[in-house]
């Protein structure tokens, strides 16, 4: 009799075993299902509307332009005299036009303005291989920060704008970093965990 009652338990035990550890890792799944064909999501370009960008190198991806974001661009609005001088000396000239640049980046390491800025033509930058457009500032930054540049090209540094699919448009170096103070500022967080004032530990 007891044996019969134990038999009744058997199906219960059998059923509970039917979800064994048959799972493969997500890496195997990726290798198995991946496809070189690009996924097309129609209308995805819409989310890039209003962004200005230029192709990078061979045109695999695009980089957001810089010059259109500069408030005092084009430089010739003021610096229209030869030798970098400004023509406007009247009262309209903002005395503090560039005074926000207090501790230019790299000064401690021996960098000076002229290491990046063209002494003759303020509307462009200079790198080791000649003039650099503001829109291609990555060529200048990447001179020293080559590791970051490699990551940035590949997508591990910087950020992609608006979409994960469709044309790859990424932020320029100066889109996130102030070229004169590239380290991120210290500030209060935008929000907090509810009731955070009294920190737990």
């Amino acid at each position: 009799m007891i044996r019969r009652s134990l038999l009744l338990l058997l199906p219960v035990l059998l059923f509970s075993g039917c979800h064994g550890p048959s799972h493969h890792g997500v890496r195997e799944r990726i290798d198995h299902e991946q496809s070189p064909d690009q996924v097309e999501i129609s209308g995805v370009e819409y989310w890039l509307d209003g962004l200005r960008y230029e192709p990078y190198g061979e045109g695999d991806f695009f980089v957001r332009t810089r010059s259109d974001q500069l408030v005092q661009f084009p430089c010739a609005r003021c610096h229209d005299q030869p030798g970098f001088a400004a023509s406007r000396t009247d009262g309209d000239l903002p005395e503090s036009a560039h005074l926000q640049i207090l501790q230019p980046h790299g000064v401690a390491e021996g960098l000076a303005c002229a290491h990046c800025h063209d002494g003759e033509d303020p509307s462009q930058l200079v790198g080791q291989k000649g003039p650099v457009d503001f829109d291609r500032v990555y060529d200048l930054c990447g001179t020293c920060h080559f590791e970051q540049r490699r990551d940035w090209e590949a997508g591990a540094h910087g950020k992609r704008l608006a979409t994960w699919s469709g044309p790859r448009v990424i932020e320029n170096c100066t889109g996130c970093h102030d070229p004169h103070a590239p380290r991120f500022e210290t500030r209060l967080p935008t929000t907090m965990y509810p009731g955070s004032e009294g920190a737990r530990r």
Partner: peptide, 10 residues
């Protein structure tokens, strides 16, 4: 009754 005994453990 037998079923109930097994069931109780269940």
């Amino acid at each position: 009754v037998f079923l109930s005994v097994a069931w109780a453990f269940g």
